[in-house]
Amino acid sequence: MVKISYYPGCTLKTKAKDLDVTARLCAKALGVEMDEIENWQCCGAVYPMGTDEIATKLSAVRALDYAKHNGGKLLTLCSACHNVIKRTNEDMKKNDDIRFRANNYLQLDEPYGGETEVLHYLEMLKTVVGFDKIKQAVVKPLNRKIGAYYGCLLLRPSGVMAFDNPENPTIIEDFIRAIGGTPVVYPFRNECCGAYVSLKNGNLPKEKSRKVLTSAKEKGAEEVITACPLCLYNLQVNGDNILPVKYFTELLAEALGVQV
């Protein structure tokens, strides 16, 4: 069993419990133990771009520093947590001013300088477990046409996220093939769902989410999967049931025959 420090985030402890629970059980079945870090705090859900923002980045730095001393890797699952933590880590590595001010505040035993490797669950499946090994572990291949919804947070900015090709990503399609499904590639899979603007101008996410689902349906998808609780919400609430939307880990659990 490989043990990796894991940052769940606030939403995965509440509305998105399904994402957390299925991910842990599937990882275990595949030989990975997700070791929840101690005393984590909400990451803030959006990366603060202002160069003078420090306090809003500290929660991510604390989690990263904890992981540095506990295996050197930090596993994330929610797309938003992943985006915030990975971009903050890049600042700690490359931005002298942010690194100095964050360390000046935190007064850690040893200053943090971006040493931890941030790993999304999908990256873990690909590089630590391997899609071939997943394929072998599948007991119930999902003979369905599935559309991957990347959204924006996993992919952009690509220079920092280095997750996949931002215009033509393939990792979730490879995942779908590994669990026996047929991936459906559709144009809006890396287009934003409308994000937090739901709370300010509800029409914008409505239009965006409908476009995503309509585009997936036109290309033949029977369902859509995501790694983000906000994508799931926007697509479900605004999507008029155009297609069912699920967490990718729910399908993994189904394919592996993991009982939840």
Binding site: K15, A16, G44, V46, S198, L199, Y233
Partner: peptide, 13 residues
Amino acid sequence: LIPQQLLVSAYRK
């Protein structure tokens, strides 16, 4: 259905 993530991100933004 509203996820905490939406409230947190909107407040932060």
